[in-house]
Every structure is written in C-alpha cells, then in structure tokens.
Design a binder for these strands. Structure first.
Lengths: 351, 351
DNA sequence: TTGAAAGCGCTAACAC
DNA sequence: GTGTTAGCGCTTTCAA
C-alpha cells in the first residue's frame, strides 16, 4: 500500500551518478554518449522500474500522440463498435493512443466532447458528427487548427477530410434486387435522431448517410416502378416496433421492409416474430450494416455491408498524415455492397 | 490552416493586464480576488477562446482525472461493449475520462496496455484480466501503488477490489431449467482463450468466470442426473462451428446446447440453420450474456443475463473511491439471472 | 487584492 | 561525452 511516488528521471540520475540530461540521452538513444554510460543508465532505470511520464514528454514536445475519437451513441451499435476497434488498432500501429467520447447523437454533447479532447491536447480528432449543419464548434479557431477527420457522414462544409461509404448507390441496388425478386410494395423504416415517435412525413434528416439511403431507396423505387411506404422513427425499440406495426397494418402493407440500421432491423424481427410472420417467407427484410448475428441467424439477413474496418483504418491513416505533415482535405468514398442471404423471399418463384 | 498555437494562461494574463496567478485565481475561483477582476479576466479568457491545458493541470496536480480501462477482445463482444459504455458514462459523471486499451485475451498485450496506462499517469485502472494466474505486472511496485479494480473475473490473489457475477449459481439454475423441460442430454460449448482448435478434454481455463460456468453446469448435470458433453473451443467462428458439428454428430448428441458466450451461440445458430434444425424445437440452446438480438430473434434466446451496466457502474464508483480515499479491497458479486425465452423446447409436453 | 517565483518531469540547445 | 539550464502551462506558497 506504500503509494510510493513513481520514479522519475531524477531518481535514475541520482542512482546512476549522472545528470538528468545524460539519462534522457541514454534512454532515448540520441546525441553523443558512451556505450558504457548507456548500458549503466539503462540497467539502473530498469532496476528502479523507471517509466517515462508521458504527460511530461507530451508537454515538452507539444504533442501527445493521442487521437480523440468522438463517436455517436455507444458500442452497442454494430457499426460503431467495429469502427472503434479498427480505429484503436490502426492508431496503435502508428504509435497513437485513442481517447474516446460519445455524443449520443446530441450536438451539445458533441461540443463538450470536442472541448474535452482539445483540452487534453489530442493531436487530432476523428468525428462522427451528430449534425451536418451544426458545426460552429469546429471552426479552425475553435479547434486550434488541429486536424479533424469526419467519418460515416458528411458536414455541409468541405473543410475536413471525410471518409464515407456509397450508401445511395447501394440502397438503389438493394431495391433493384428486391424488385427482381418480385417485390412491388416496399417499406423503409428509418431511424432519425431528433425525431420523437414516428411519422411518415419526411423530417429534417441531420445525417447525410441516412439521407443517402433514403434517396437511393427512392430512386430504386422509381426505377422499379414499385410503390413504397416510408416511416421515420425515433431510434428506440418500442417506438420502432410500433412503427413496424403501423407499416404492416397499412392497406398498402409492404412485402419487404428495409431498415436503416440494426436497431430498426431488430424491431422488424421482433414484430414479425410476434405476428408469426416468417422472415424470408411471409415478410422480407434488408438492413444496412452487417453484423455477426445477422449472418448467423436463420434466415440469414440480407444486408448492405459497409467496409467498416477499412473506413476506420483509412480515417486514422489520413488523420495521422495530416498531423504529421500538411495535407489537403479529401473526400474518400468507399463502396458498400449488398450481401444476399435468405431474408428476401422470391415472390416470383413461390407463385 | 493557420495552426495558431492555442492560447495559454499567459496570453490571457497579457490581454487582461494582470499576472498569470491572478488569471488562475479568477478562472478557478479560489483565493482572495475582487469580483471585478474575476469578471474582467473571464471575459477576456472567453473572447480569446482560452481553454486550460489539461496536461499542464494534471502535471501540476499530480493526477489526471483519467481512468485506464483494459478490456479483453473488442467491442464486438456483447458483454464488453455494454460494460465499456457504462464505465465511460459513470466515469463522466464522476469527472473522469477513460483511456481504453484492449488486450485481446493476451497477457503480453495486457502487460503493455497497463504500462501505457501508467505512463499516461492514469489515476487508476479497471482491468479484465486475461489470466487469473499471470499478474506479475500487477505488483504494487509495478503499478506504483495505483488502485486497480478487476471486473468480470477474478485473479488468484485477493489484492484488488473485484466485481464479478454469480455465474456458477446461474449456470446451475439454467441446467435445472433445462432438466425441468425434459432435457437429459446436455452439451456445453465453451470458448477458452489459448486453446487451438477444439477438444473435449478440459484444458487449463485461465478465466474464472468461465470456470464457474463450467462448474455450475457440472453441478446442475449431476443434480439432474443427466448426461453431458463438454467441448472446449478456440474463440473463432469456424472452429466453434466444427465443434458444434462434432457435438451433434456424437452418439450421445445433446438435445440442448449451452454456450459460454455469444460468439459460441452464433456458431450453434449457424450450424443448426445449415442442418435445418429449428431452434427451440429440434435443438435447444441457452447462452451466457444477453444481447438485443438474442432477445429480438425468433425464437428468443434463453440466456443467463448478467447485470453489465451495474457492474461497470460499481467498478468505476469503487475505483474512484479508492483513488480519492483509501479503501480496502472488496469482493463484490452481482447476481446473474436466467431469462427464459423460447429457445428451450419442452420435451415433456411434446411427447 | 495581487504579483513573483518555484516546480511538476522531461528534453534539447548550449556550454565545457 | 557529459553537465547546466531553460522552459512547456499551470497552480500555489510566499511577499508585498
């Protein structure tokens, strides 16, 4: 329990009978210094259990080798948990630590999170912005000129490097696939942060990736000359389930429901289960974002899979590049692709 | 692009015509200082966008208000993602930040992670240890007397406060429940880190919570006078699937399979799906750890649910208490409970 | 009520 | 090849 203060460079210097500067040189291996001194100092440092104080180093160097990650919601989300992991892993490869905060899709929280990051002197920030329009906390002055990489969605200004996925095209493809299977009445259950309850009137969608999915879906529907029902829901299980009920009770009830994320998918599965509708037979479903359970379930869920790990990897790489050199903002779009499993019934064959 | 160095207390002092000391007093609100000076300095600080350098504060204060969290594997795990979130949330409430590293169930990685934490001067550490026996990196000297809270599992030494769940009892209960439903041939698919491939010989189990599940299961089987097959697998989808195949092809093939975590559950679902076995009918399953998808699936999966959020909450509370005062190590065990859904067939009724 | 100065642990320019 | 010294940004005695 002797909470001995950790050993500092001074202790090592004293114990090895040289100056602090020499210790520093020996340990960091720079400057002119005799091999014997190096060996001696290192031995002493080891025996003392010396560990450099990263704070002091950072303070001296003016950089922390730390990346701030501000992610919406939590790790319960099948997309962000994987993104977070890949970001941490890639950061580690490049010698960076990651400080994580989540914004819960709330701009006010995001603002504080960014503040916290900056006050902790992160070298750069990776951000999943809660809103495409509300970014007054991201002016160059506010962020002290620190590099920022935006992922998953876009801001309505092109100031930062952005890494997103081609969801519009993928959504359109997914609809085409549904049409090929004979689906003429489609539904789309869309989680929209900021919405209360659910509605079929299109609300403000503050997230560009969601907007893209909606747009791609709409295009696909038009091309396929199909009919469609849109329903925008709060991202909450019970609400989403009620929304699904409404969808299924509608006179133009869809034979297939698209869901904008995994939470919404779960709502569909739940309601279908309660009603005794077999997925892939009486009701079809396609979701955005793959997950281990969507793949392992029976039936396997057809999804628009996005290259999450790659996205995280690239985001870190770009950010570190921006931290270390000077780079221009880029727009990087990775392809999303449809993984066909068994959750879409073939209506043509069965008739 | 003008990467202006962020404004320091010196800038504020200069701009408001007072000394650094006065600025510090005004901003932190301590000591004797006139109200006007306070207002003036605050106004200037605001207009300059001054933000205290957390590094410098931490260095001066000798504490960082940061907790280090070393978690195994990643956030893909239904247990650790929720634990992580609850830890971050609770830490925030108490004014602490969280630095996260994962060990991938590898003691060597864990060791480095702890080093990193300490070199970043975290005030305390929450750890999910990869091994109950290998903790030479956790001696009081090595961790500089910093408080550590162990979660989810135990070490074989009682040095630290530990927050776990009562898995043995819960496992036994779960078996009893299976027996009540007429299951006489049980299987248990257990993920064991460090194992390669799969085996039915009990290997060294370095994780106490897993050991408890195995023990509880065994007790339950004995009590129920049932027969059982154990299979220990690498925590890898394909391997686990092969293990399930083996289990099902055995002459004493179980009617119900217990799985030690969600990944293993997925393997069972996959194989069952491939073989056309309906869960909750031809094959029953019970898993450890609840998840949104296990609840929403059809059939709903019967699980031993552990109070994850509570566990995280308590771990942080205990750690912060230890950081701020001096507390003695405690052993906290939270109850796990069986959530009955539809994945366990009633063999008595159907006959 | 305010300012001057020291020092947290570290590194690097500059002496010797 | 090694030591001295200054200073990163901050808070807090101690003096005034």
């Amino acid at each position: 329990m002797t909470a001995n203060k950790s050993t500092t460079i001074n202790d090592v210097a004293a114990a090895s009978g040289v100056s602090r500067a020499t210790v520093s040189r020996a340990l960091s291996g720079y400057g002119r210094i005799s091999k014997e001194t190096v060996d001696h100092v290192r031995a002493v440092a080891d025996s003392l259990g010396y560990r450099p104080n990263a704070l002091a180093v950072a303070m001296r160097a003016g950089k922390t080798k730390t990346i701030g990650l501000v992610v919406i919601s939590d790790f319960t989300n099948a997309f962000f948990d994987r993104a977070t992991k890949s970001i941490i892993d890639r950061a580690k490869e490049l010698g960076f630590r990651v400080l994580i905060q989540h914004s819960d899709e709330d701009v006010a929280v995001e603002r504080v999170a960014v503040e916290t990051m900056l006050s902790n002197q992160v070298d750069g920030i990776i951000l999943v912005p809660a809103s495409k329009t509300k970014h007054s906390h991201l002016t160059p002055k506010k962020i002290g000129g620190k590099p920022v990489v935006i992922i998953d969605r876009r801001l309505d200004i092109p100031r930062f490097t952005t890494v997103t996925t081609g969801d519009e095209v993928a959504a359109e493809e997914a609809v085409a696939y549904a049409a090929e299977n004979g689906h003429k009445k489609l539904g789309f259950l869309i989680a929209v942060p900021g919405t209360t309850g659910f509605t079929s009137e299109e609300p403000e969608i503050p997230i560009t990736s969601v907007q893209e999915r909606v747009d791609g879906f709409a295009k696909g529907v038009t091309k396929a000359k199909a009919s469609a029902l849109w329903i925008y829901s709060e991202d909450k299980q019970e609400i989403a389930e009620a929304a699904v009920e409404k969808l299924l009770d509608s006179p133009k009830a869809p034979t297939i429901i698209f869901t904008s994320n995994n939470d919404m998918l779960l709502a569909v599965l739940k309601v279908a289960g309660d009603r005794g509708l077999t997925i892939g037979k009486e009701l079809s479903v396609v979701s955005f974002d793959d997950s281990p359970w969507a793949a392992a379930m029976v039936p396997g869920i057809t999804v628009v899979a996005r290259p999450v790990e790659e996205l995280g990897h690239i985001a870190v790489t770009e950010l570190v590049e921006a931290i270390e050199g000077n780079t221009k903002p880029k727009e990087i779009v990775l392809p999303a692709n449809l993984i066909k499993r068994s959750s879409v019934a073939n209506l043509l064959k069965s008739k």
